[in-house]
Nucleic acid binder design. Sequence first.
DNA 1: AAGAGAATGAAACAGATGTTTCACTAAATC
DNA 2: GATTTAGTGAAACATCTGTTTCATTCTCTT
Lengths: 214, 214
Amino acid sequence: MSKIRNSEETKERILCAAQSLFAQRGFEAVSLREITAEAEANVAAVNYHFGGKDALIDAVIVRHMMPVMTERMKLLAVAQQRADESDGVIPVVETLDAFMRPFLMVMNESGENKALFAKFCGRIMSDVGSNLPAEAVEQFSIMVQKFTQALSQALPHVGQQELMWRLHFSFGVMAHTLMHGERLVEVTKGACGEPDFETTLKRMIDYCIGGLEA
Amino acid sequence: MSKIRNSEETKERILCAAQSLFAQRGFEAVSLREITAEAEANVAAVNYHFGGKDALIDAVIVRHMMPVMTERMKLLAVAQQRADESDGVIPVVETLDAFMRPFLMVMNESGENKALFAKFCGRIMSDVGSNLPAEAVEQFSIMVQKFTQALSQALPHVGQQELMWRLHFSFGVMAHTLMHGERLVEVTKGACGEPDFETTLKRMIDYCIGGLEA
DNA sequence: AAGAGAATGAAACAGATGTTTCACTAAATC
DNA sequence: GATTTAGTGAAACATCTGTTTCATTCTCTT
């Protein structure tokens, strides 16, 4: 227990390989043998450590979405604290930042392949139906509620229903950009400028502010 | 040649069944046997008429995306004609309408299962990587160029690069809404209002106008 | 150092997948 | 009406899928 057991390493290697491949080609399209080949592990290891492919998918999702969720809540709490010193209302720009920035942060932490992580996050939001692990669904539901409430206070002239739709649209902006950001570069042959993450974040926030306040 | 041959019927039946199933579960997850079962055709028929599964996917995409593309171009041309009678600049709202409405139109024409068609369109935009049939890619590229140009004239204060990104974001709004519109209803337990297509279109357009003009 | 338990590796499993084959039927052409 | 072609149906094909088995190796505890 005191030392890192070897098994934990291979578990980690499988998770990394799986995430990388899932990001590139989707959950269904990647086989266990491809994953274990890249992870330099045996096919049986997946079933031994996780219980099966579906369980591996859930593990990968939970493993890499949870930090984003908690980071979001943390940033929103900080913004709330800051707002409480004035009128108690969080500016839209800060709410959106709390919502979108965590991807950047976790990405930067995960080093190496940032674009791949972004793609993976976007894929989770688009690819998975209602098959998300229960653990993630609950956390997600709570988060949506918190952020809707914050936006509602900052945008009192926007009706509740309208706001829900606009938040949904903002989700779409983020998901699509994460997954297909590089495609824009391809299509425009680089005329859209270099896809710097911080700049892209600012662009997304500005756009969504415009949409939310419309 | 004068009469509709029987083979064309089964070809059509396969296309319909494939579209329906692809929309619900994605391209990779649906097997040929499921498709031919629903189409009441033989497994060999797919390879005989299309040449294989990949070719079938391409056929389904081309078959149902082309009307949308051409309809978009038509609506934009009409708006251009209308604009030429005044200052020659197409209002943003009309450009966005020309961009998004065709989905509604083709959906309404295709009768029966509108939500399924919407989901399929959204899936094409999200699911497929750069594996789109060449025919569609070219048409798509031309369309993007035309619409960027139209928006550029209406929004001279927005730089070219910025505009490309914002158009990309608008794409995301549409794709995400088409694919996951019903999920919003689930998550909010119906509190977001009933998902009427015309209303949703207006909501999307309003949101995107706000974002584009930000 | 020895033994118990965890982790691995290679092979085999049953099932599903896309594709092909070939005998057969329907339709079009002469 | 006979002949050639287009289209269909059922079965077999090889391959790949996720999963399981079991003997072996490694790691930790005593």
